[in-house]
Amino acid sequence: MLTLHCPHCGTLAAETELTAGGEAHLKRFGPGSDDDSFEGYLFMRENPKGVHFERWRHSYGCGKWFIAARCTATLEVFGTYPAQSSAPPQHIRDAITARRPGWGWRDLA
């Protein structure tokens, strides 16, 4: 079972207490954007075997959103941080680099 640390209330939340919210760090392209950008925002998602960033909601607990950096192949969790972050904080990137040297995800590395 996937167990994630909720950065808001500080408990370890089991997967059954969480709601998956899809890929993290999407940039919204709304009215006025060109068709390719809008299509990318709406439909194009990463599907990596390895490092991935996902939004999760601690729905049975404090009800807050957070982002988890984890490996889709091994279920290893590199860290979690509040959803009020436009990019992964440095300590999360360092934790990933320590475990997966040379990792890349979208335009992050």
């Binding site: 939340a13 059954t16 049975y60 404090c62």
Partner: peptide, 19 residues
């Protein structure tokens, strides 16, 4: 519940939300 209820993790005065 999946909450950690070991005496060291959950004792008098502690509150949790879970299922």
């Amino acid at each position: 519940t999946p909450t950690d209820l070991r005496p060291t993790a959950f004792g008098p005065g502690d509150a949790r939300r879970s299922h």
